[in-house]
């Protein structure tokens, strides 16, 4: 088993959730000093998923700066039919891709999903994400040790965090 979650982090998540309802945007979480993400690193990036802010989450996950690239193709709808299920996919023509991550800027926690792409796996992922409101979705492709991104605004009329 690779999950290392014990009872303590779970409880903290609950508390965080309760606070989140009342005080969206309150960011007083411990700032995890997660190192740059290595392709061989098998560990679940728990701290990065807990951060509110996109820049903080990128820093925790990768510890590097990102540059926009037209070689990253992000496909997402103009208007999400339902914020609970937004189909989002990314492909890239970049070489030596080791990971692809998705961030939703104004979700309670910006990092949505992060995929490790081993050798022999194509640099393309499709998934379905929740979006709380109209905001930017960013895909970050890690290729040859550098980070490249594409961003698109998705309009959300029915939010995906209210159940």
């Amino acid at each position: 088993m690779t999950t290392t979650t014990g009872p303590h982090p779970t409880r903290r998540l609950i508390l965080q959730g309760a606070a989140g309802v009342a005080l969206l945007g309150l960011g007083n979480l411990p700032f995890g000093a997660a190192p740059a993400r290595a392709a061989a690193n098998d560990k679940y990036p728990e701290e990065a998923f807990k951060l509110k802010n996109e820049a903080d989450a990128i820093k925790a996950l990768y510890g590097k700066t990102v540059e926009p690239s037209d070689k990253v193709k992000l496909d997402a709808p103009e208007i999400a039919e339902n914020g609970g299920v937004v189909p989002i996919s990314v492909t890239t023509t970049l070489d030596k891709v080791t990971s692809i991550s998705f961030f939703v800027a104004e979700n309670p926690n910006a990092l949505a999903a992060s995929y490790r792409i081993p050798d022999g796996t194509l640099p393309a992922v499709a998934n379905r994400l929740k979006m709380a409101k109209t905001t930017n979705v960013t895909a970050i492709v890690e290729a040859d040790g550098k980070l490249y991104s594409a961003t698109k605004e998705v309009k959300v009329t029915v939010g995906g965090c209210g159940g």
Binding site: P77, E78, I79, E81, V86, P87, R128
Partner: peptide, 9 residues
């Protein structure tokens, strides 16, 4: 736009 999301679903 919705039709595309449906096809993906």
């Amino acid at each position: 736009d919705m039709k595309r999301q449906w096809q993906e679903k």
